[in-house]
Amino acid sequence: MEEIAFFFGALFALGGAIAVVAVKNPFYSVLALVVHLVFLAGLFLLLMAQFLAAALIVVYAGAVMVLYVFVAAYVGGIEEPKWDASPELRVIGPILAVALFIAISIAVLGSGLAALGTPGPEDVPSGFGTPEAVGLLMMEDFLIAFEAASLLLLIAAVAAIVLAGRRREDRKSATDDRKSATDDRKKLVKADEEINAAAAGKGEGAR
């Protein structure tokens, strides 16, 4: 049962992750990411991390992805070319990818694989992965890290608002430009009308 659930979840989680980068349409990319997140939450459930699973779905699938979907659907329809990078990126990209792969490999070989042959922890402590346990960890043992992360998010939010505000000022000056442009056009239309009227008058006179 566990094995079936694990391989089922792993298959869809991996498939979703690959589809995110392999699919051309950004809307499908976002949907693939949602599929990935949902099945990743399922894998968390297998590890008894229920709070993490619920938080993953509520925060990522429920809030962050909704914003992505919003943007992707509005921009949508544009098929992104799969690999159209500048010459510098063509060199740097693969190097960084290989470096990341090596880093992850070291981490996996060093820790994760060591536990592979063992049956795993015999008895999971009662209440492991519940909101209470996670809350105690975050509010007592890792308080500083937790607060630092929330401060970082706060700064990011404030920065986003400042940047958006600046963009709006630009747009205001742009509308000013447009206003003067419409004034110009009005003048032109008026001149046009005068010329037409004059031409019509001349025409009548000739008749």
């Binding site: 229920q50 619920a54 509520v58 429920g62 909704v66 659907a73 209470e132």
Partner: peptide
């Protein structure tokens, strides 16, 4: 009776949203 309780409700209501979204899109 899940210990995550009410979060379960929010998790599935956010999945329900994708039904509307997919339907519309």
């Amino acid at each position: 009776d899940v210990p995550i309780g009410i979060l379960y409700f929010f998790a599935f209501s956010s999945i329900a949203f994708y039904g509307l979204l997919l339907g519309g899109w």
